[in-house]
């Protein structure tokens, strides 16, 4: 984990003075997430619905964490509370010691799909964050170009999103979130709508970018392969109510490539995850049955 901090020449395009000016802290120390005893309860027509129950989680700066779980287990809700969209009903969420009360550009967000502004060109989409941060149009355009190069889409800066494929749109989404130099990148099943081929390439892409950026990433997925391939750590959640049932370290060396997916150590880890998830899920079921 600590083997790669700042070593890639592509990093030259990133503006490190801005990165530090934004936070006042050196890059490696930004993005510590702390979730403590969080319950998230929604009022629905059929009474209160507990989406997240008693969740506690600490993510270290620069760590890549996957929230893994079945659909509807509250993993996206938990992430949305880190993003600042959903206030916890109980407990607290802090990033770098500050309580999260609303969304902020310091916590970049990548959504599942169709989240680009369709009326803005690719460049305008990426420049939006810097513009909102108050830099001038020229500088914002410059930042946008930098980040579009980073995701390999510089040639498409004047295209509208609806002409791009799903994978390209997601890369623009990643560039847009990163253009604010966030200390935390929150990704809500960003590759969930893509076909398998594209998905694998996107995962490699993401790791390439992240290796240069080294910010904290929280990545929501229901795909075990994806979680193992990407993360330093997998936090497993169970459904209704959403609870954290396992916390698995992924000690696979980086950089990771597609060949890893068929390697014995990947398989072993995946098996370990499956077993653990199965055991914990069974436990959870039994506890629920006892309680019920």
């Amino acid at each position: 984990m600590s083997d790669v901090i700042v070593n890639d020449n592509r990093l030259a395009v990133l503006d490190h003075s801005r990165l530090r000016a934004n936070s006042g802290k050196p890059g490696a120390e930004r993005g510590r997430i702390s979730v403590r005893d969080v319950d998230i309860v929604f009022d629905t027509a059929s009474g209160p619905h507990v989406a997240v129950q008693n969740a506690s989680l600490t993510v270290r700066p620069g760590e890549f964490v996957c929230l893994l779980g079945p659909s509807g287990c509250g993993k996206s809700t938990l992430m949305n509370s880190i993003a600042g969209f959903v206030p916890p009903t109980r407990g607290d969420v802090t990033v770098d010691g500050e309580a999260v009360t609303e969304p902020a550009p310091d916590r970049g967000m990548v959504f599942q799909q169709h989240s680009l502004f369709p009326w803005k060109t690719v460049k305008e989409n990426v420049a939006f964050g810097p513009l909102m941060a108050g830099v001038g149009q020229n500088e914002a355009n410059g930042v946008a170009r930098t980040f579009l190069s980073l995701v390999g889409l510089a040639a498409f800066e004047n295209t509208y999103p609806n002409t791009l494929s799903g994978g390209m749109q997601q890369r623009v989404g990643i560039a847009r979130a990163l253009a604010n130099y966030p200390s935390v990148l929150l990704m809500d099943e960003p590759f969930g709508a893509l076909d398998a081929q594209t998905r694998i390439m996107m995962q490699e892409n993401l790791l390439d970018i992240w290796r240069e950026f080294r910010n904290t990433v929280v990545f929501v997925t229901h795909d075990i392969d994806e979680a193992v391939f990407l993360s330093d750590r997998i936090v497993v959640m169970s459904a209704s109510p959403g609870r954290i049932i396992a916390d698995i370290d992924v000690n696979l060396s980086r950089p990771r490539e597609q060949s890893l997916l068929t390697s014995p150590e990947f398989m072993a880890l995946k098996r370990q995850c499956l077993d653990l998830i199965r055991k914990e899920t069974l436990n959870a079921f039994q506890q629920q049955n006892k309680a019920g």
């Binding site: 550009p105 959504f111 989240s115 502004f117 939006f128």
Partner: peptide
């Protein structure tokens, strides 16, 4: 989703009205 995207990018209410 676009409103949430704009908010996470630091847009104010006025900016959301104008840009989204």
């Amino acid at each position: 989703v676009l409103v949430r995207a704009a908010r996470s990018l630091g847009a104010s209410r006025t900016a959301i009205l104008w840009h989204v």
